[in-house]
Design a protein around this nucleic acid. Structure first.
Lengths: 215, 215
DNA sequence: TACAGTTCACTGGTATTCCAGATACCAGTT
DNA sequence: AACTGGTATCTGGAATACCAGTGAACTGTA
């Protein structure tokens, strides 16, 4: 049996999706910028067909808007967007910890704590902290055993990461978030749903305040 | 100024998206069925290019799964799917009423009540009731002033409608939901968030029980 | 009969081509 | 100077052509 039969090569549309999204989040492409299908397909070295599929997904997920026969534009970051994503994250991260706690064992708890410590170590690099914070929340979402919820949280944290980058670019730095992760972990250890929810909300509210203050 | 400049014709990909989704929800295409791009594009009278975009969106939204070079398959309805969608709906419909109540005026309240009454009138037609129930919840979501939440709720209610159809096909009828809508409306009238949340949860839990019992 | 190998029709993935809407520019007119 | 109409050149939308992976059906053999 050949290895090539098992390891499917990544589709062009998926490569393009990842690369473009990365470019948007990292501000390599700026909000409001126009994306020309032809020049994009040239620079990615693929044809327009798989590129269109990537752009379609990015549009459904809220990264770009398509204006037929006019162009495809990276979304602007508006106050409304930040609020909407924040409201959704609030509700759904609470759901994550609700679903999470009954299924929590000591081993995964250790892993959670480890992730949190990695963030503490990187405390001087704001960009890195933002990325690791996303990973932290994404890992919790994984543990919820709800694929759709996981996918939703991924989209929301990616957007938050984007907003956070914008805030960083605006010059100011985000507040520390480590002790907030600490209180989430503490509540998880005690298997206390109410306390865990509250800790998550405090954390998200502070992140929201920090981001919207700096925009 | 020409009229044709104002009224943009609907894109083929959007037409295809709507039609295919409708066919899936109505069980014109059965769960697990394979969708061939070529025969689908033939029967829709369009080429594969816009069809692929429609299928891409349907995949992102969880209606079909694509297996490269093997085929595109309508998702099966599994217990896990029903649970996942239900968990998400619970959390996010609660969010809807939270956001809704502060913005509620008497006029929209009347409209809500009217929608509920329409359902009462159709009580004998289970299929119609399921559809109108979706509209009811979708209208509430609209009032949340959160586009992303609205879009999410639309996807979730559409899935629930699909699951409900499956339950109806399984022979049994859904329980009555009118008095449950009534208690939601009552709580909205009193501008009582806690009571409204509770009423929404009771309603969703009953719907979930009714669906999963009949599958 | 059972099985290994081949063939072939079918799949989606990708590239290419053609088309029409949108827009900026420019020349001619008033 | 301001407007009008034409045109060149962008844009994405859509159709088509071509390719490679897949798997079932067929076939010749042990």
């Amino acid at each position: 049996m050949e290895l090539s039969k098992l390891t499917q090569p990544e589709l062009f549309k998926d490569q393009a999706y990842r690369e473009i999204k990365k470019a948007i989040i990292s501000f390599a492409i700026e909000p409001g910028a126009m994306l020309s299908e032809r020049s994009l397909s040239d620079s990615l070295g693929i044809s327009r067909t798989p590129l269109k599929l990537a752009l379609q997904q990015l549009e459904v997920e809220g990264w770009v808007t398509s204006m037929p026969r006019k162009g495809i534009f990276v979304k602007d970051i508006t106050e409304t967007d930040v609020r909407e994503v924040f409201e959704l994250r609030r509700a759904n991260e609470v759901l994550v910890v609700e679903l999470l706690i009954p299924r929590l064992d000591d081993k995964t708890l250790d892993r959670i704590e480890q992730l949190s410590k990695e963030i503490t170590n990187e405390q001087h690099d704001a960009l890195k902290v933002v990325q690791l914070d996303s990973e932290f929340h994404l890992y919790l979402a994984e543990l919820s055993q709800n694929r759709r919820l996981h996918q939703l949280i991924e989209n929301l944290t990616d957007h938050f990461q984007w907003f956070g980058m914008a805030a960083l670019k605006a010059g100011k730095s985000l507040e520390e978030i480590n002790q907030e992760h600490g209180s989430i972990i503490l509540a998880l250890k005690m298997r206390n749903p109410a306390q865990a929810k509250k800790a998550v909300l405090v954390h998200l509210d502070n992140t929201y305040r920090s981001i919207s203050k700096n925009l």
